[in-house]
């Protein structure tokens, strides 16, 4: 079977004035449909940059990214945005919920942006799976960190994306909430065949994945 994600000699260099900072120095990676992959490494090793490139939030300096057969390195920003809308979900360390909206509205917003309309069956199923059904009418500031992260996961998966990219999803949570969130991600991966890429510092969190990739200095050093 063709891998869902393929990167070839992927490089990303940040430029600040005349100073160039290489963040990725030739990353080669393949991820199969339905895999749960953890990417670990020290701060500044390029994990987040890799995630942003795989999610189409940024474009590479050189190299190739194929996601579900689409070459991100040749797509415009608008094309990547359209692809992300339908195929990719993000979960962030800081939850990134819109503070003025309730949990329900945060989740529905993703469906609205996707443009396929509200799917009550899917909504109910996701809310129950993530155990947030009774917290849907609260704003983020009335939710615990664990609840906010579960709402963020619900928002990320409500549109049934092929790929879920999680950037330190347990970074702001205590042990108990971390375990809960990881268990739910595991469930999503198993029951919905969701391809999951998670970056983390936490080796315990990484242990929840099927596969662990180690990065250092912008390169994969162990897979």
């Amino acid at each position: 079977m063709e891998p869902l994600i393929v990167t070839e000699n992927l490089k990303k260099v940040y430029r600040t004035g005349k100073v160039e900072t290489p963040a990725l120095r030739g990353v080669n990676l393949q991820v199969q449909q339905g895999e749960f992959v953890a990417i670990v490494g020290p701060s500044g090793c390029g994990k987040s940059t890799l995630l942003h490139l795989l999610g189409g939030l940024a474009s590479p300096t050189s190299g190739k990214i194929l996601v579900d057969g689409n070459d991100f390195s040749r797509m415009s920003d608008a094309e990547r945005t359209r692809f992300r809308r339908h195929k990719i979900g993000f979960v962030f360390q800081r939850y990134n919920l819109l503070p003025t909206l309730t949990a329900r509205q945060n989740i529905v917003l993703a469906q609205h942006i996707q443009g396929n309309g509200f799917n009550p069956h899917r909504f109910q199923m996701v809310a129950e799976m993530l155990r947030i059904a009774d917290r849907l009418d609260f704003r983020p500031n009335a939710l615990s960190g664990g609840e906010q992260q579960r709402v963020a996961i619900a928002r990320a998966v409500i549109c049934e994306p092929n790929i879920l990219l999680a950037d330190e999803p347990t970074g702001n949570l205590d042990t108990e909430n971390s375990q809960t969130v990881l268990a739910m991600m595991r469930t999503l991966n198993r029951s919905l065949q969701q391809t999951l890429l998670m970056i983390t510092h936490n080796l315990e969190a990484a242990a929840a994945a099927d596969r662990i990739i180690r990065m250092r200095d912008g390169q994969i050093i162990e897979d």
Binding site: G55, L57, A78, T81, R82, R84, R85, H86, I88, F90, F92, N96, L97, L98, P99, L109, A110, I113, Q114, R155
Partner: peptide
């Protein structure tokens, strides 16, 4: 930051 969130969800420039 909120605009960044919308963009991460796939919101277009027009949106």
């Amino acid at each position: 930051r909120e605009i960044g969130i919308l963009k991460s969800l796939g919101a277009s420039k027009f949106y």
